[in-house]
Computed example of a mutant assay.
Amino acid sequence: MPSTALARPLAAAGTAAVLLGILAVGALHVLPPTAEISPVRRTISEYALHETAWVFNLGVLVLALGSLAVSAALAYAGQLRIASVAGLGLLLWSLGLAAVVYFPKHDWAVGPSLDGHLHRVASLVAFLSLPVGALLVVLAWRRDARRRADVWLTALPALAALAMFGVIIGAFLLQPYTGVAWWRAIPLGAVERGLAVFEVLTVLALGRWAWRAATDERKGAFLTDVR
């Protein structure tokens, strides 16, 4: 079996896993007891501090595995070199998500913890590395007419994710001048959820990219055989 033949099943499985992971985390927004958590002020990781934490953890891990499958699909489709900065960015996204689960956020009812600090670092790495890695893939293929739609569908959510990330960084940097704690200066929960939405859309766009590239390769091989 040629390596490109693995790209389509990996892209399909990865996309399905990403959607299932998001469905699991999304359900926590509307089902008790976590439905009472403010999506505007509280971060998504707050769901990991309740009795239904297993749903959150499972959803994030499935999202990480799905994203990893999408990265592999891109590599098998010949669109990504795993041993590259772009490949590293996509890998760090998946590893960062896994670390977010392994190291729970601060439980402020108890106080700050080492796990909470590591959780915050893992979140920053994950949220930043994915759009950067995706944009590097975009830059590598921006002049290929066959990939024009994939380039735009990937670049737009990746840039939007960086913009949302910039809102958080801006609030942090302005903290000494405004005198307002950065997590209070913005609706942190809403901004983080917006960031997460654009990150997921980026992964889905990459999954579509891998599928279409592998399909094009298959069609090309078929035409070659016919000739």
Rank of each mutant, 00 (worst) to 15 (best):
Y177M: 10
V30I: 13
A160R: 09
E217M: 02
V25H: 02
S71V: 09
A83L: 07
A35L: 07
L204H: 10
G66W: 08
G21K: 01
R142T: 07
E36S: 15
L159K: 00
R146H: 05
Y76C: 13
V55F: 07
A185W: 05
W108P: 02
L19K: 00
L159C: 08
A64N: 03
Y47P: 00
V110T: 13
V226Y: 04
Q79H: 04
G166K: 00
L188M: 15
G207E: 04
R120M: 12
R212N: 06
S67L: 12
V121I: 15
G87K: 13
V55M: 11
L135I: 07
L136D: 11
W183Y: 14
T202S: 11
V70S: 05
P104G: 07
G179C: 10
W182I: 08
Y177T: 08
G66N: 08
L20K: 10
S84A: 10
V203A: 06
I168F: 11
P33I: 14
V151H: 10
R142V: 11
E36A: 15
A190G: 05
T154H: 08
A109N: 11
A53N: 09
G59D: 09
L114T: 10
A161S: 13
I44K: 07
G111S: 07
G96W: 08
Q79R: 10
I37C: 05
E192R: 01
A171N: 03
L173I: 14
W152R: 13
L90S: 08
I22E: 11
K105D: 15
G66M: 09
L159D: 03
A11V: 06
L31Y: 03
A185R: 03
S71R: 15
Y177R: 12
R8S: 13
A64E: 01
V132I: 15
P157L: 06
